[in-house]
C-alpha cells in the first residue's frame, strides 16, 4: 500500500531522467537510449507472494562505437558524475573484462557496466519498493 509522498510513476520518471542525464554526461557526444522500461512489476510474484506491482527497473545504453573501449576510465568518470549528483558509489573489482559500479541514493539502486570487449555503456536502475517511497 502506498503511504509516501512520491508515487511509483513519479519515481520511475525520476529514475529514467537520472539515468539519461548521467549517461549523457559520461558519453557527451552520444544520445543515450532507453532500452528497457517495462513499467512497474510485482516482485512478490517472483517468489510465491502475490501482491501489487511494486518496483520499476529501467535500462539505458549509450556509447561511441568508433572509439576503443576504455571501461576503467568510463567507470571512473561515471563514479565521479554520480557522486557529484549525490549518489553513494562503490566500484567493484574488475572481473573477466567486466568493469562495474553500483550506486545508491535515497533508496534508488543503480549499476553501471562497461566491458573491455564492448563499446556500449549500460546503466540499469531500480526504484525503491513502493512501500519505501
Amino acid at each position: 500500500m502506498y503511504h509516501g509522498s512520491v508515487t511509483l510513476t513519479e519515481a520511475r520518471n525520476h529514475l529514467r531522467s537520472e539515468l539519461l542525464a548521467v549517461a549523457a554526461t559520461v558519453v557527451p557526444d552520444q544520445t543515450p537510449t532507453v532500452t528497457q522500461d517495462v513499467g512497474p512489476v510485482d516482485q512478490g510474484a517472483l517468489s510465491d507472494e502475490s501482491g501489487p506491482e511494486s518496483v520499476c527497473t529501467i535500462t539505458v545504453e549509450t556509447g561511441d562505437p568508433t572509439t576503443t573501449p576504455d571501461p576503467e576510465a568510463q567507470i571512473g568518470f561515471a563514479a565521479e558524475t554520480l557522486e557529484s549528483r549525490g549518489w553513494k558509489v562503490t566500484i567493484s573489482e574488475p572481473s573477466e573484462g567486466r568493469h562495474e559500479l553500483t550506486a545508491r541514493r535515497q533508496g534508488y539502486d543503480l549499476t553501471v557496466t562497461a566491458r573491455t570487449t564492448d563499446w556500449r555503456l549500460t546503466l540499469t536502475g531500480q526504484t525503491p519498493y513502493v512501500d519505501d517511497l
Binding site: 553513494k88 562503490t90 566500484i91 567493484s92 573489482e93 572481473s95 567486466r98 562495474e100 559500479l101 553500483t102 545508491r104
Partner: peptide, 11 residues
C-alpha cells in the same frame, strides 16, 4: 549503505 566500502564484491 552504512556498511558499504570502496571494495565491492568480485563478480
Amino acid at each position: 549503505r552504512r556498511a558499504r566500502t570502496q571494495e565491492g564484491p568480485e563478480r
